[in-house]
């Protein structure tokens, strides 16, 4: 039985129109126009225990809104969801003790104080027994290597250190389900990798079910076997990341390097669509089925071939193309 089940889940926001200009803002004093925005429309998916699923989509696609509904922060406008058998927006303590939410841009730590104070606060809120609290804290602190910074006010920590403390705060009660909204946003490359490694390891060792949203393809590629692509409030794709390429990338890329005097444009044009050209290196895009033949043809030709590589189109590229098509 799936641990997360979502059926026809929808969310519509209401808001008021704001007009620029003096006269308009004066009018706004008396009358405001109500507008609606569809953030999530009738999405369906289910997730098994222990899965690590990536939500992918541009800003405003509905990723965060979906996570907020699954956390019970938002009431949906329609549809159903069950997480661990609970309806999230009933906000039952029994459910809340079993999941955690981390938002990269919205932290839960007390800004002026050492992270430890916020941990203790969560200990009281989640009613974690002393012994268990000590054990979990030790384990997480060692895993993330942050022992020295526990007594430093959060505001004095680097973004990466702060995110590590956020993770600890969220994991102290050993949640079975974890929602991660942009956990690596704004971090430098090293910090991103640290966080990523931690998430991967944690998922593997604790069998925690994780939904992750991210801007960075790197996060998704590293962590998620399965992705759910959302754009314009709808699910465009739900499946293995590897299969995404087969499904959406009709082409492969041939990168050919030449020696001697190189080549001219005319000489190589007949092999396929030129994505990149210089006399010593070209990139050609060919249909998947014909990639091998094209490579053979190039090798068989008179051209001074030095090396030839057949690549999948970069996944970033695939995703970008999916989003472009829907615009």
């Amino acid at each position: 039985m799936p641990i997360i089940e979502v059926k026809n889940l929808s969310k519509t926001y209401e808001y008021y129109k704001k007009e620029p200009g003096f006269i308009q803002s004066l009018k706004g004093l008396f009358r405001r126009e109500k507008l609606y925005a569809q953030a999530v429309s009738e999405i369906n998916f289910s997730i098994e225990e222990g899965e690590l699923v990536g939500f992918l989509g541009p800003n405003g696609a509905g990723k965060t809104t979906t996570l907020k509904m699954l956390s019970g922060i938002l009431h949906p406008s329609g549809g159903e969801a069950r997480v661990l058998g609970y309806v999230p927006w009933k906000r039952q303590a029994a459910y809340q003790k079993q999941f955690a939410l981390i938002m990269g841009q919205k932290n839960q730590l007390w800004w002026d104080l050492p992270a430890m104070e916020s941990f203790i606060l969560n200990k009281e809120i989640y009613e974690i027994p002393d012994a268990e609290f000590g054990k979990n804290l030790d384990e997480l602190v060692d895993l993330l290597g942050v022992r020295e910074i526990l007594s430093v006010p959060v505001r004095k920590l680097s973004l990466g250190q702060r995110m590590k403390c956020e993770l600890i705060a969220a994991l102290l009660h050993k949640p079975r389900v974890l929602f991660l909204d942009e956990p690596t946003i704004g971090l430098d490359v090293v910090a991103q990798k640290n966080i990523r490694d931690f998430i991967k390891r944690y998922n593997r060792e604790k069998k925690t079910t994780i939904i992750l949203t991210s801007h960075y393809m790197e996060d998704i590629k590293e962590l998620c076997e399965r992705v759910i692509i959302i754009d314009h409030s709808r699910i465009l794709y739900d499946g293995k990341l590897a299969e995404l390429i087969n499904k959406y990338a009709a082409h492969k890329q041939l990168t050919v390097t030449f020696n001697d005097h190189g080549v001219s444009r005319e000489q190589v044009e007949r092999f396929g669509e030129l994505a990149e050209f210089s006399p010593y290196k070209i990139v050609i895009r060919v249909e998947r089925s014909k990639a091998k033949d094209a490579a053979a043809a190039i090798l068989a030709s008179e051209l001074p071939v030095d090396d030839i590589l057949i690549d999948e189109v970069e996944i970033d590229e695939v995703v970008r193309r999916i989003f472009k098509n829907t615009r």
């Binding site: 200009g21 003096f22 803002s25 004066l26 706004g28 004093l29």
Partner: peptide
């Protein structure tokens, strides 16, 4: 002056 004035109006309440 005018910009400041507009901004102030949005503090209507």
């Amino acid at each position: 002056t005018k910009i400041a004035w507009q901004r102030a109006l949005t503090y209507r309440f």
